[in-house]
Amino acid sequence: MELVEAIILAVLAASTPLLLAATGELITERAGVLNLGVEGMMIVGAACGFGGAWLSGSIIVGALCGIVAGALLSLIFALMTLGLAVNQVATGLALTILGIGLSGLIGARFVGEKITPAPHLHIPGLTDIPLVGRILFGEDGFIYLSLALVVAVWWFLYKTRAGLILRAVGDNHVSAHALGYPVLQIRMYAVMFGGACAGLAGAYLPLAYTPFFIPGMTAGRGWIALALVVFASWRPGRLVIGAYLFGAVTILQLHAQGWGVGVPSQLMSALPYLATVIVLVLISRARSGGSTAPAALGTVFVPDR
């Protein structure tokens, strides 16, 4: 049973950067913008997050640096796609290239340095409860933050007027504009929220997961976050399930090897992606042709004057 607890702890940690980045991207996409540059924003967040924490000695400062870096990078994306009506797919890919380069330049001077990782919660009594104590009350702050963020995003999307407007903008920007909502402005905030979350997700890696910075340390997690948003069919609740499922597959595949189970690791790793395609087909089909994707996703909007 202790092994189960340990596996769950590892899964939670492995899923958190995915969940953080995907939550941000979910809001971006709900507003009708497809930003494929998540990986680029994450890796810059990792470099700046580590740099901030190393220079200041504070994990919180590091996390803030990651958030700001991700948001600033996404602002470039917003200016391009919203201000200049440039194609979102091309811009997002260019953003990734830029981000990888920037993070290498920024991070070069921090290579080989080490920080104390983010502390884990410890509530005497509660954390010591066998099996569930550490899972519920012994995580690092980022894990609680990621879950709080999902709840907040859910509440925002479905319980507030602003959330309703955001969804309207993502589903039909022409109507939203006709109703007098500032489509581009709303989208810019959504993009920047996505950037901030991606930056935080990137910063999680050197601040809590492996407390040092190495170029390229996000190792493709940004792309998985993109897949997750689809897998979750743009719903925050399913995002949590999806993120933990992805994390569980990653961790269980390693455990399976330790147990000597001879399944090709590539097949295990491919499952989440195949599952995403199948889920996407199923949900699209259930809606008889109409996809659950925000209808205006990825399309350019230039208001008529």
Partner: peptide
Amino acid sequence: ICKVRFGASEILTSLMLVYVADLFLDY
């Protein structure tokens, strides 16, 4: 086909299939 038959977003399905191909080659 997923797009035409079921209306599934081709941006996302085509992206997902990249990783599947990559892992298949790896295997």
